[in-house]
């Protein structure tokens, strides 16, 4: 049903867990063995942008999300 791209770049992810911590709906989870965050359930994403805001290495790929640019410039 989603028509926007929402992924976590596994090469860039440094395993800091921050995105999984802030996700309010468990759309993102953290794999403790691999030490990487991953998108568990894209359908649960609220597009709240908190993961984008906290990721220190820009590993979160969200394309086609409204307001995304607005928020980055604020």
């Amino acid at each position: 049903m989603l028509d926007f791209k929402y992924e976590i770049d596994q090469d860039k992810c440094i395993g800091c867990e921050m995105c999984a911590e802030v996700c309010p709906t468990m759309a993102i989870d953290f794999d403790a063995e691999k030490e990487k965050a991953y998108v568990l359930d894209r359908d649960n994403c609220l597009v709240c942008h908190q993961c984008l805001e906290v990721c220190p290495v820009d590993a979160i790929i969200m394309e086609g999300g409204l307001w995304q640019e607005d928020i980055r410039t604020h």
């Binding site: 049903m1 989603l2 028509d3 926007f4 609220l46 597009v47 086609g64 999300g65 409204l66 307001w67």
Partner: peptide, 12 residues
């Protein structure tokens, strides 16, 4: 408001 964002992105 969020509904427009949510719905557009979900093609709803």
């Amino acid at each position: 408001d969020g509904i427009t964002g949510l719905n557009e992105m979900r093609n709803f």
